[in-house]
Amino acid sequence: MKNKSKLINLSLTHIIMIIFLMMLLFPTFVMLSTSFKTFEGVLGWPPQWIPDDFQFVNYINVWIGDYQFYKPFLNSMIIAGSVGLLSLLLGTPAAYALSRYKFAGRKLFLFSVLATQMFSPVVLLVPLYKIVRSMGLINTFTSVIIGRSAFALPMVIWLLTGYLSNIPKDLEEAAMVDGCSLFKSLYKIILPLAGPGIATAGIYAFIMGWNDLMFSLTFINEAEMAPITLAMSDFVGKNVVYWHEMMAAAVISILPVAIMFSYIQKYLVKGLTSGAVKG
């Protein structure tokens, strides 16, 4: 009796999940399917899920052929990687302080961190543009990196604070009693324990950088330095929209991050737990 209801429950869960996933991944299927079509195949009716004239050449064209997408891909990697590093570098100490000390201004700081989320980056483009220009950073990766990091930082701090709060204070105190300096104990004890959390926060920031269009559109002038999102949006702006090649480009823009995510998926859930509950 009980087993039976459990079985029904389980199969119901699977059915709902599968239907949900089919709906959720519908655009993803369309993207994949289109990316293997010919131009004629794209505009045919009825559309085919698995194209008759299946071709892989779209990917080669996009990657190293006409479009040279490996360049924007590398640019995106540089930008997103630096955003991840910079956010962690700034965010980890701040999160450590928030999780370990009660100090005057702590609440104000936490509140300000939330408030920054209320200004859409779009809104700040004009003043940011002026700042970037006055710093002589127009047309540099640096401009995009610092811009994006500033907007990734609040969430990074939020995530990390939660993570670090979960690591017992006694550990580093014990280490310090043993004669370790504060920094040494941080480096030896805390960082390794917080590893998954730091990775999660870093990847969150990485994705923010990977996602960026607004800052690179505004600050970067040369096609050579364009990240993948900008290259994609230029792709759309041309007269003929080559959907098959565009979708191949889209797959390329999603794949690396998707692979990274599947690795940290477990930690991601844990990381957010502690962050959400304590934050």
Partner: peptide
């Protein structure tokens, strides 16, 4: 400097 009509 190549740019799409949509962004120029």
């Amino acid at each position: 400097i190549e740019v799409g009509w949509g962004n120029i």
